[in-house]
Nucleic acid binder design. Sequence first.
RNA 1: GGGCCGCUAGCUCAAUUGGCAGAGCAGCGGACUUUUAAUCCGCGGGUUCGGGGUUCGAUCCCCCGGCGGCCCA
Length: 503
Amino acid sequence: MSDEPKSTPVTSDDDLPEQMRVRHEKRARLLERGVDPYPVAVPRTHALREIREANTDLAPDTATGVLVGVTGRVMFIRNTGKLCFATLREGDGTELQAMLSLDSVGADSLSEWKTDVDLGDHVFVHGEVITSRRGELSVMADSWQLASKSVRPMPVAHKQLAEETRIRQRYVDLILRPQARETVRTRASVVRSLRDSFHGRGFIEVETPMLQTLQGGATARPFVTHSNALDIDLFLRIAPELFLKRCVVGGIEKVFEINRNFRNEGSDSSHSPEFSMLEFYEAYGTYDSMAVLTRELIQEAAQAVTGSQVVTLADGTEYDLSGEWTSLTMYGSLSEAVGEAVTPDTPVEHLRKLADRHGLEVDPKHGHGKLVEELWEHLIGDHLHAPTFVRDFPLETSPLTRAHRSELGVAEKWDLYVRGFELATGYSELVDPVVERQRLEEQAKLAAGGDDEAMPVDEDFLRSLEYGMPPSGGVGMGIDRLLMAITGLGIRETILFPLVRPE
RNA sequence: GGGCCGCUAGCUCAAUUGGCAGAGCAGCGGACUUUUAAUCCGCGGGUUCGGGGUUCGAUCCCCCGGCGGCCCA
């Protein structure tokens, strides 16, 4: 940030690896010669991409007469006696060759190039756009200058970086691996597509609190922090749901938010303690209409990103997101899987027997709803490959969801499963303030009994419902999961800087 | 939380039964005016994750700890 004096000495650290010591010495020698290894600006005239796009069909050994100033990171370098080659790469991944000959830059400049420039340096090259004898589009330098000296050696570009290094030093991963840069762009395209889809349908984007005074909107363990000014503990939100519903109460009837949620839990191939969440609500929508909208959002995102609703995953296999998607009910599909009728009336003891019979260990504290969900996940959910809506969850474990309009004991809630993981969840929202109060009081009892995932009674939220919330549908969808669904990547690849334990 | 595997040069990885710690790329010196991971000759580079133990001798065997990965819960 700050300008250092030009006389900055070589670092006195003798412990530096040889290669870093050498580069620091080069930097110091440049300063001694009065050459700034970190100039404030260089006279760039063209992006590498512009030169590539303007010269698509040049024959080998062509001189265009066009003079340009270009920049890039030196990715490969091939120095011969009197003619040097370097492959420059710019941020968008475009590469262009720079050539420096004794004839065009002179002996001193060529010799400085050979001694001062390392792999990884950013350089500026001014010269003529030509093609080499082999036909490689190049800039034949008439002058060059360092744009930024790299004092840390770049890892070899031909070997895969260890996974831990890729995640801990994502900047290196981005330098070396085109796929890493592509993932960043894909993610941006997905988020943009979602916003476009919503705006095209008249939805309003809002931002609701990330710092909340009560945890709510989901069952999960929160991160706790503290406000010095208010002297109260605050929770990093686990979900925006209760605030988005307040929006609907207030008349923002088609509303969405894309923002970060935080859950104080471990991470694995499909979980991260902080993750981006999309939630959207629509007055006079139901879990049926929300399922249709959810499918369209995902299909439009796949189309926007890949140009097709049949996407190619990271492992090379194709995955079909097009058309209508399968629906099944939780109790119906579970009954089929265990070979006997399982209903909301099936006693807890019998569910435990079923779990035991299918080799599933369950927490003895689990009630009916949790047992049914775990059995279902174990027997069906984990194996669902094609996009599938599983509908009508146990009422007991869905405290913010409306009871089914005709089926007793189940809630109008669906989960969308894609390749065995949960991608989104949708509801006909519970809007009756009296029933909602009962549900939250049940949750509060669980919390008092030591369940740190249960939510407390949120009086302000209940007050908003008491003013009257229109019948509504709501959906939550993980953005990272959506990336996983469209690309086939693991969650640590879709998140640019995943949380890792400090080195 | 449990089990298994890994951690060695800047990077990616070897190292026989416990016997002088190596390779490729990268680096340094030299040659080379059309290279494409340039090539050729020469050279340097190590707290083998940390601590303890066994042993004449430990990258290797044992114990404790750290970090990571995979599987299970």
